[in-house]
Design a protein around this nucleic acid. Structure first.
Length: 202
DNA sequence: CCCTGATTCGC
DNA sequence: GCGAATCAGG
């Protein structure tokens, strides 16, 4: 794959949105995150260090599960950096006049809409599941990683635990089983072969 | 362990 | 210019 205009544009766009190199690479396809990072640097948009100078620190990292801020959020105003340029002589030939926008905090997640309803679909509600599987499940849940929605990755068990309507809700987060969305224990209860699934009398 | 970006350097 | 390998962190 080559860096066509389109691909570069998408790269710029996503990078600007705060997407990670690996995500961008995945989106583009045919390239690794290394390639993306390499390109990003070559394009000179790795960091928009305009005033910091010595600040080689990435600073804005992942968006942390922060609460509050019940702000209606009208416009994603990129938070500018308070460049406290003390006394920077022109000893820095920086031909980069790129006011790269830096949305310090990008929250791709709209909102954690919680059904807050009584009907909780995919819960351990299985009634006729192998006692063994259930045992293993509750056992594993005891030491689950307790990840939040944003912390889930393709390798973390996405089994929901707790009541979404309360703050006692989280995801298992244990290492998933190859290919599956859940850890071994939860795969066990999620993929019931097809046994105790008797006809419900309806 | 998983992940992140940064740098190097042979191609 | 490109990106795998490597480095340096979280």
């Amino acid at each position: 794959m080559s860096w066509t205009e389109e691909r570069v544009e998408l790269l710029k766009k996503m990078w600007g949105e705060g997407q990670s190199a690996s995500q961008i690479a995945k989106e583009l396809g045919g390239v690794t995150r290394n390639a993306v990072i390499g390109k990003v640097h070559r394009l000179g948009l790795s960091n928009r260090s305009g005033g910091g100078g010595t600040t080689v620190k990435p600073a804005a990292k992942e968006a942390e599960p922060k609460q509050a801020a019940p702000k209606p959020a009208k416009k994603p105003e990129p938070k500018p950096e308070p460049a406290p340029a003390a006394a920077e002589p022109a000893a820095k030939p920086e031909p980069v006049a790129d006011p790269a926008p830096r949305p310090s905090n990008v929250t791709p997640i709209r909102k954690t809409i919680v059904p807050a309803g009584q009907p909780l679909p995919p819960q351990p509600s299985a009634n006729e599941i192998s006692p063994e599987a259930l045992a293993k499940q509750s056992e594993v849940e005891r030491h689950a990683k307790r990840l939040t929605l944003m912390e889930l990755t393709e390798r973390t068990c996405k089994w929901p635990i707790g009541d979404p309507a309360t703050d006692d809700f989280y995801f298992c987060g244990l290492p998933v089983q190859q290919g599956k969305p859940y850890c071994e224990a939860h795969v066990g209860v999620a993929f019931q072969p097809m046994s105790s699934r008797r006809d419900r009398k309806r």
